[in-house]
Design a binder for these strands. Sequence first.
RNA 1: GGGCCGUUAGCUCAGUUGGCAGAGCGCUCGCCUUUUAAGCGAGAUGUCGCAGGUUCGAAACCUGCACGGCCUACCA
Length: 509
Amino acid sequence: MSDDAADREPAMNRDERDRRRKLAEIEDLGVPAWPSRFAASHTLEQAAETFGDLDGPGLDAIPEAERTVRVGGRVVAIRSFGKAAFLRLSEGPGTLQAHVRRDVLSERDFAVSKALDLGDWAGVTGPIFRTRTGELTVRADSLSFLAKALLPLPEKWHGLTDRDTRYRQRYLDLLGNPRTREVFRSRAGMVSAMRRFMDGEGFLEVETPMLQPLATGAAARPFQTRHRALGIDLYLRVAPELYLKRLVVGGFPRVYEINRNFRNEGLSTRHNPEFTMLEFYRAFSDCADMMEITERLVIAAARAVRGGEPAVFGDEEIRFEKPFARVSLLEVTGAALKEHGVALEDDDLRSAAPLAEAHRQLDLPLPPDESAGKLLLSLFEALAERRLIQPTFVTGYPVEVSPLSKASPDEPGITERFELFAGGLEIANGFSELNDPDEQAARFGEQMAKRQAGEEHAMDWDYIEALRHGLPPTGGCGVGVDRVAMLLTNSPAIRDVILFPHLRPREGR
RNA sequence: GGGCCGUUAGCUCAGUUGGCAGAGCGCUCGCCUUUUAAGCGAGAUGUCGCAGGUUCGAAACCUGCACGGCCUACCA
């Protein structure tokens, strides 16, 4: 892509020329084309609420001065009768109709109304009344031009359907599709409910570095950048985990962070390179405590969006109700294997050779690291994960796939860790935090020894030093906020719950 | 990476057997002072994704490419 192509202004089409001509008409009338402010008395929603209970005679009985409003919005429909017109104004969740009349408006204001295009911003002042058909309407005694839309709105019946445009020009999607607005209002309500929940549980909201000298806390490929003044490479964080636990060492026993993580990996319906994670840590807690609080958190989030109703997700109905199902990785994977005609005893599910053989039988690619734990997890992800529709805690994760989790005192090779699934999506991951600095250093060492090309694993000595100062018994959990939002808004793709998802850059623009 | 589908007016989309490039919305002009996808009349839409090829003739058929979508694969 050349700079020329990137910098070139898009060619002006006929629509824009027409609209610029009407803008000039408005300026010729002496009306400011781009005024700074508009002192509205009500939002459109407030105006509709305030007067919505009154019928026509009821409104007429009120003196005009007491039902006069000053409201602004985007003009989304114009029905003109020559010497009068109806303008539908839209702003945020509100919408209201205005009636402009030649015998009511000043000559100049009426001329401005004739020069309006769909998409322009305008304000009107006048009394509220009901039309013959009963619609709540403002009689425009004066009209204020607020801003010009030089480009047309998307088509009004079908709305904007092209996926690419919906993601790249999200404002058009929001403008034309009420459903899109609803998804993002729901998401905001959900995040807000999550914060209220954490605050109510006595957690302190904190912010930890996005730019980290080592990309720690998860085994994902990081984005790399450069700090010029310090002369060092930095990574966008793949997880906040190790910083949050440093805060527990520092005497904040309950901390949480809702923020972005960045992973330099493929895009899919379930993956965006930057995604939002809620992570929380609580001292004197273990894996079981984390399952209990995660369950309540997710139910609170679901209630905020769905009320008491089950979440509809594709063909499924997901019930976020206590108690969530609990299964072990071993049993759920074993059962899934059996259904695929591969019967393995529990001992086989703990041994690399039979698990690798199962991959061959089912024609599944082997993971690069062929430890028993990794192979078991690979089978789980291939066969079992997608079938976990109702909220289900999976427990019993092997040590070799859980480098930050405390090992179980009872079951050798198993950690005190869970993942929560719903709608076939992984939505949370929590565990008893490994707080023995020597064991943590040993685990990091094993990870480094097994790292694959392109992966970044490094010994975080600074974190080990923090552990050496004493991390109390602590439970932690990370919740995939985007994925929970997908489930609660019936969105099949993560792009549908991220306002500006990452896409391949458009050529020649 | 693989498979399938798509790309035609600003938007949403038709386009039959290869024979003048179409509809609705939006736009322009005219009429219309209570409409609700307002209505009536008239009008203009365009690099049919790009490049080749076949053909008297290609939006359509063939080849290649680009871009996008879905599925799949990869991915803690």
